[in-house]
Design a protein around this nucleic acid. Structure first.
Lengths: 206, 206
DNA sequence: GCCCTTATATGAATGACGTTCATCAAAGCG
DNA sequence: CGCTTTGATGAACGTCATTCATATAAGGGC
C-alpha cells in the first residue's frame, strides 16, 4: 500500500536516477505500480510532495556535534553535513531549493539542535536566528552552485572581454572546485562569526 | 516589433506584478499584444527566457567599487548590490535562482570586474574564483531566504519540541530579519576571507 | 514599379502534465 | 453477513510549452 515513506523514497530514487524533470506524478505512480490519481489519496499536491522531499533530505543532516564540540566546530560540522546531504542528491537541489516549508518534522528538529547549541555556546538570544540563517544561506547557495553545470564561468564568445575571469578560472583547482569554494567560505564564515560574537560581547546591546 | 529587450522587460513586469507562476508564454504574449507562438521567433525556449531574466537582473548589480576601495569594502559593496538587485524582484528569485547560464553578457562583465578587483587586491590567482563563488553562494542563498515566506521558522505543532528555536525566533529583530542575517553573514564572510588571505600570504603554496 | 527573399505574426494542433471525480473493490467491524 | 471506510481506478479537464503550415509585410536588386 502507498504511504508517505514509500512515495518519498520512490520520488528520491526517481530523481536521483533520471533527473529533476522526470519527477512527474505519472512517472512516480508508474514506479510505484499504481495509477497517478492514487497518489492524491496520500499527498494533496505536488508542492506538498516537494516539501516531503526537502524534509527527507534534511533528515540526513547531522547536527549532533553541538554539545560535543565548541559552537564553532559544531557549526562547521553541521554545515558540512548539510552540504553533503544535498550533494548526495544533486538532481534534487533545483526542486527543493526554492520550496521552503514551515513545520516539517526533521527540519524543525535540526533547527532546534543548532539553536540550542548556539545559545549554549554564548550567542545572545537575538542573534541566534541570524547566525543560523547566515550559515544556512551560504550552504544552500553552495548546494545550488554545486548542482549547476561546471562550465558556468566559461565566458564563451566574451572571453576576450574578460581576461581576469579567464585567468582566475584556469588557475582554479581542477578537483571539485565547488568544494574548494565551500571550504574557503565556510572557514571564513565561522572565523568571522567568532569575531562578531567577541565584538558583541565587548560592547553588548540591551 | 518584438525584441529581446521588450520581451525581457515585459516578463519582469509581469512577474513583479503577478508572481512567478503567472509567467506563462501565453500571458507574456498577451502583455505584448501578440500571439504566443510569435515569441518563438525571438526566444527558442522558456528556459532561454529565464536566462535572459537572470542576466537582466545581474545587469543591475554594481561592481564598480573595485578599484575605488580596498577589496574588502568593494567585495562587501558588490555583495550588497547583488542582494539588492534580487530583493527588488523577489518574485523573480525562484525562477532564476536555479537557472545558471554561461556566457551571458552582463553576468560575464560583472565577474570580470570582481575577478580583476580581487587579483589586483592581492588574492592569489588560484583562489580568486573560490572567493567569488563563496560570496556569490552566500548572496544567492540569502536571496532565496529573503524571497521565502516569513514564517519558515514557525514550528507549528512541533513548538513544544523546539523550545530553543522558539526562543531564538521570538528574540529576532522584528524589522527585516532576513537583512539582519545577511549583514551578519556578509560581515563575517569578509572578515574571515581577510584572515584566510593573510594566512595564505604567511605560508604560500606553490 | 515589380519580383523575390527574408523576417515575423498567426491560429490551429499536439503532447505533457497536474488535478478532479464518479465509480468500484477490498478490508475491517459490528 | 451487511455497513462503512479506505484506497485504487480510469476517464476527463484545463493549462501549458512548443511546433508547423500559412499568411503578410518589408526590403533590395532589377
Amino acid at each position: 500500500m502507498l504511504s508517505r515513506r514509500g512515495i518519498t523514497a520512490a520520488a528520491v530514487a526517481l530523481v536521483d536516477a533520471r533527473g529533476p524533470r522526470s519527477l512527474t506524478m505519472a512517472a512516480l505512480a508508474g514506479r510505484l505500480g499504481v495509477a497517478p490519481s492514487a497518489l492524491y489519496n496520500h499527498v494533496s499536491t505536488k508542492d506538498e510532495l516537494l516539501g516531503w522531499l526537502q524534509d527527507h533530505v534534511n533528515a540526513e543532516i547531522d547536527a549532533s556535534a553541538f554539545g560535543e564540540l565548541g559552537w564553532q566546530a559544531a557549526l562547521a560540522s553541521w554545515a558540512r553535513s548539510y552540504r553533503s546531504a544535498y550533494a548526495r542528491h544533486p538532481a534534487l537541489v533545483p526542486l527543493i531549493a526554492t520550496a521552503r516549508v514551515a513545520g516539517a518534522e526533521h527540519t524543525v528538529a535540526m533547527y532546534e539542535r543548532v539553536a540550542a547549541g548556539l545559545a549554549g555556546g554564548g550567542w545572545p538570544q537575538h542573534r541566534v536566528a541570524d547566525a543560523i540563517v547566515a550559515v544556512e544561506s551560504f550552504v544552500r547557495g553552495s548546494a545550488l552552485d554545486a548542482s549547476a553545470p561546471e562550465d558556468i564561468f566559461e565566458p564563451g564568445g566574451l572571453a576576450a572581454s574578460a581576461p581576469s575571469l579567464v585567468r582566475a578560472v584556469r588557475a582554479r583547482a581542477r578537483h571539485d572546485p565547488a568544494l574548494a569554494a565551500f571550504d574557503l567560505g565556510l572557514g571564513a564564515l565561522v572565523t568571522g562569526l567568532e569575531a562578531a560574537l567577541q565584538a558583541a560581547d565587548a560592547a553588548p546591546t540591551p
